[in-house]
Design a protein around this nucleic acid. Structure first.
Lengths: 230, 230
DNA sequence: GTCTATATCATGATAGAC
DNA sequence: GTCTATCATGATATAGAC
């Protein structure tokens, strides 16, 4: 009865810790969150967290990994599908952008997948100063970014690759910030945006898409140079 | 000789603390930086920091304030000048965007004004989870943002105000991230961008400008609605 | 797997001599 | 204004009973 069981106890504790950590890291940042706070919110003992994850750093990585895995696989899948539909012809930039950033925002609408909380955490994590986080994110994102970069190169043959990379970078920033800085929105606006629901895909997604694609397709700056030969 | 003196000693210590704090906060974040580290780097005693600033929070605020003051006053001045030149006619959006974001990036080129270090700190600060930082930033930015918002409303009479606010928000994000996430750029690019000098205004500024203006002037999304009456 | 209890250390802040 | 010394607190992590 002990070996054949589902070990539901373990899974519950582990996931409660992950959920609590996700929320606290989002709210207070990595350095601003203590293991005591996490386990307190999770309603489990402090020692349990270290038993399941080994360290605070490992806990943070697992918080990020479990959701990024889903998102990035979906991103790759959607791009594959779009390319299959196109049958060899280059994709429209807007399709690529939608696959990448649309996937991210649709996760926020999905409560079960962690929703808004993880999205805000991700937005903040991307500029987090902790070096182990940056290293981890770079590794976790490497494949997807490479894949999307290549798709954009094919999609925009007349734009220097260097410029595309920069603009991808700008798009990432606009999106991360739009998500992470919900509070800061009150900096810029006086009236209430519909129920304050920034992550309501119906609102944010089309607005963001228009902006991103407008930026991506903007006239090239004067200093734009060709990418290195080879 | 003691009263009539310049009190150069005090000013030196104070500024050395500020400079060290700026650098450490940029590198490790607010929560990741201890007063001991700051005073260590500054080469002053721990107690001196508390004597001059009273608390860690107050130190952080002063780090931000001393540079934001300069930047934001320059932003207001340039906008005033541009409007005076236009003589009543609405400004071109590109002029407004250049006044706001161009000023910021030109600071990075100016070593004396703190340069790149502060810029990166600012980029990260904008999404910092600490509530006292967000409150402080909101207050410090309120006037400038209100002023630029109004200028953009006049400049883009056919775009719903709500949409303009959102796009301003996106522009802030793209810029902050472009600055803060210099390291993350290697996520997206394989080859070396010219000497890695992201803050070389000659490179980043025109690229960023094209992107921002392209986004700002993009076709409106379908869901765009008019701002609330009155 | 889970808990109590604790080891060990770093933090922000201050008191008080100089 | 600057220093030494110290307080009180809270941090990560682990040992060991159950």
């Amino acid at each position: 009865m002990s070996k054949t069981n589902f070990d539901q106890t373990q899974k519950d504790t582990r996931e409660r810790i992950l959920d609590a950590a996700e929320q606290m890291f989002m709210q207070n940042g990595y350095d601003g969150t203590s293991m005591r706070l996490v386990t307190g919110v999770a309603g489990v003992n402090l020692a349990a967290a270290n038993y399941h994850f080994g360290s605070k750093e490992a806990l943070m990585q697992e918080v990020l990994r479990r959701r990024l895995e889903v998102i990035n696989q979906e991103r790759l899948r959607l791009l594959d599908e779009a390319e299959a539909r196109a049958g060899g012809k280059p994709l429209k930039p807007s399709v690529i952008v939608e696959c990448f950033f649309g996937t991210l925002l649709r996760v926020a609408a999905d409560q079960k997948a962690g929703g808004e909380t993880f999205l805000k955490l991700l937005g903040r994590t991307i500029t987090d100063p902790s070096s182990f986080i940056r290293t981890f994110m770079a590794a976790e994102y490497a494949d997807v970014l490479e894949r999307y970069k290549q798709a954009l190169f094919l999609s925009l043959p007349n734009v220097p690759k260097e410029e595309i990379v920069w603009r991808f970078h700008f798009m990432l920033g606009a999106t991360s910030y739009a998500i992470a800085g919900t509070d800061t929105l009150h900096l810029v606006t006086d009236w209430q945006v519909n129920e304050g629901a920034v992550s309501q895909s119906e609102n944010l997604l089309p607005r963001l898409m228009s902006f991103l694609i407008g930026g991506l397709r903007a006239p090239l700056p004067d200093t734009s140079v060709a990418p290195p030969a080879k």
